[in-house]
């Protein structure tokens, strides 16, 4: 079975700063992989390689192969907009557009040229249901997305990402700005989404990584130190530095 996503000798430079040093990584479809490590270790940068968001940063240079479904996306001639339609992303802080709840979810669909009301309604409902938000907002779809709670906003952002039916979902510390109850809702959601999507999640929360992920990768100063099944990493880490980090001795 070919892995869903794979990187081969991935090198990334911010100008002179060598931010990712030769990462070889792969993850299978329908799994959740947690990326952990201290701040500045390159895990978010690594995550952003899969939808080429690093392109937005001046002086950022990526070398090596990044494969999604066996296709190299680290290619100058790749249509980045098309790629991003297939790779959903959820950000650290909820960032809904200042539009209605409905329009937020429909945004990606409209970008794809879908304007028929019936199809939009169908897909928005489906996405909101997947994001476990439908029951809470179904009567207020016209309400501004800025008026709902932070936890709801984050689930709205997940719905927005899911609406365009990506196969890979990237989550960059999706619960760091949320309260514990909202966090547990989002975690539950991630667990359910696994059935349909492949998920990469960056987190600072060890318990979260242990709870939601199948595999865990530990990053440190631009290197992937250890990558294994989550249970293995948390119960029986092979490398001392991983153990130190997990047990809270540094980081």
């Amino acid at each position: 079975m070919t892995p869903k996503i794979e990187t081969k000798n991935l090198q990334l430079y911010y100008g002179a700063h060598h931010a990712l040093k030769g990462i070889d990584f792969s993850a299978n479809a329908n799994t959740v992989t947690a990326l952990i490590g201290p701040s500045g270790c390159g895990k978010s940068t690594f995550l952003r390689c899969f939808n080429r968001m690093n392109d937005l940063i001046d002086g950022c240079d990526v070398e090596g192969q990044i494969l999604i479904d066996g296709m190299n996306i680290n290619d100058r001639y790749l249509n980045v907009d098309e790629l991003r339609k297939k790779v959903g992303m959820v950000f650290q802080k909820p960032n809904p557009f200042p539009k209605s709840i409905f329009e937020n979810v429909a945004y990606g669909l409209r970008i794809n040229g879908i304007n028929e009301k019936k199809i939009l309604e169908e897909k928005v409902e489906k996405a909101l249901k997947q994001a476990a938000l439908w029951e809470e907002v179904k009567d207020n779809l016209k309400k501004s997305a800025m008026s709902i709670s932070g936890g709801q906003q984050q689930r709205l952002c997940i719905a927005r990402a899911l609406a365009v039916e990506p196969s890979l979902v990237l989550m960059d510390e999706p619960t760091s700005a949320l309260d514990p109850i909202s966090t547990s809702k989002v975690e539950e959601l991630i667990y359910q989404l696994k059935e349909k999507y492949t998920i990469l999640i960056v987190t600072h929360n060890m318990q979260q990584a242990a709870r939601v992920s199948d595999k865990t990768a530990f990053f440190y100063i631009g290197e992937m130190i250890e990558y294994n099944d989550t249970t293995e990493i948390f119960t029986n880490p092979k490398i001392e530095r991983t153990q130190n980090y997990i047990t809270g001795r540094f980081g």
């Binding site: 098309e82 991003r84 339609k85 960032n95 990606g108």
Partner: peptide
Amino acid sequence: PKAMKEASLALGA
């Protein structure tokens, strides 16, 4: 906010 821009770009806009 940069987050608005990124949200839109990440959706393939």
